[in-house]
Computed example of a mutant assay.
Amino acid sequence: MIKDWMTSIPKGEICLRDDRKKTTWNATIEPFLMSKYLITQEIYSEVMLTNPSISRGIQKPVENVSWFDAIKFCNALSESSGLNKYYHVNVENESVEIIQGANGYRLPTDAEWEYSCRALSESVQYGVIEDIAWYERNANGTTHEVGLKQSNEFGLFDMLGNVWEWCWDLYDPDVYGSYRIFRGGGWSDDSRGCLASNRRRSHPTYAIDDLGFRVARS
């Protein structure tokens, strides 16, 4: 199933901004594959043989997963798909390194995520918020099945709202150490929280009921 979910994202460039640090920078995006949908509880359970989610439903996004959980899922999905693991995980100190040349599943980078979310649009919301996202005003306090709202121009669903999404990148190691970035807003956020430009961070062991992920491949 996951193979059928992957869609091609074209090469491009994006200017990113961090409002806290008051910095901007440009990133070149090489062509890659991104999953159209958030990883569901059904797929996560099939691969990991467990479901940590608080709001249960097989087609709802898996949530209450840490960054480390997402990394381990990527490796397990790669192995079950006959691909090379993308990450080397050191269990003793919980460090993670990219395996050069690997063709397996991985988390999108911060730049890839925003580029994919905007889908070549200059807008921070790729459509009318009611039509594209489950958020505070329409979610009724819970997650919803993936793919029910309108996709963006790249054919990606739930890039805004439903659950936040872990990315690969460290946020600011000089200040926050090992904290990783997550993006997109969730069901408990207002419209201003569901923007392509919003960036949050937390410890890689952090897990909560409005935080999940989707996968990418180089």
Rank of each mutant, 00 (worst) to 15 (best):
G147H: 04
Y179N: 15
W164P: 01
N162I: 11
W168S: 03
G161R: 10
W168F: 15
Q150H: 10
G161W: 10
E153G: 06
L170M: 09
M159Y: 03
D174C: 08
D158F: 06
M159I: 10
F182Q: 12
Q150M: 13
L160M: 07
F154P: 06
V146H: 04
F154Q: 06
Y171D: 05
Y176C: 08
P173H: 05
W168P: 02
W164Q: 00
S151C: 13
D169N: 15
L170T: 07
R183I: 05
P173L: 08
W166P: 04
D174K: 12
Y179E: 13
D174H: 09
K149E: 02
P173C: 07
D169L: 07
Y179A: 15
D158K: 11
G155F: 09
M159R: 13
D172F: 11
C167G: 10
L156H: 01
V175G: 01
D158A: 07
L170S: 13
Y179C: 13
E153P: 00
M159C: 14
W166V: 08
F157N: 06
L156K: 00
G147N: 08
D158C: 08
G155A: 09
F182P: 02
P173E: 15
Q150I: 00
N152A: 02
D172N: 15
R180N: 05
M159P: 02
W166S: 04
Y171V: 13
G147P: 09
S151N: 11
S151F: 00
I181R: 10
N152K: 02
D174L: 15
I181E: 06
G147K: 05
W164N: 03
Y176P: 01
Y179I: 00
F182I: 03
M159A: 07
E153L: 12
G177D: 11
S151K: 13
G161T: 08
N162V: 11
P173I: 02
Q150R: 14
G147A: 05
F157G: 01
L156T: 03
L160W: 06
L156Q: 02
Y179M: 00
D169F: 05
W168H: 08
Y176V: 01
F154Y: 14
F157W: 12
K149H: 04
V175P: 02
G155P: 04
N152S: 06
L170F: 15
M159N: 10
L160Y: 06
Y171G: 06
L148V: 03
K149D: 04
G161C: 12
G155W: 10
F182M: 10
R180I: 04
W168D: 03
P173D: 14
L156Y: 01
S151Y: 00
D174I: 13
W168L: 15
L148T: 11
F157T: 00
L170C: 12
G155Q: 08
W164L: 06
C167P: 11
V146M: 02
V175F: 14
N152M: 04
W168C: 07
G177N: 09
L148A: 03
V146C: 11
C167N: 09
K149A: 02
N162Y: 09
E153M: 08
V163S: 04
D174E: 15
D174A: 15
F157E: 02
W168T: 05
D172I: 01
S178C: 11
D174T: 12
R183T: 10
Q150E: 14
F182A: 03
E153F: 01
L170P: 00
G177V: 01
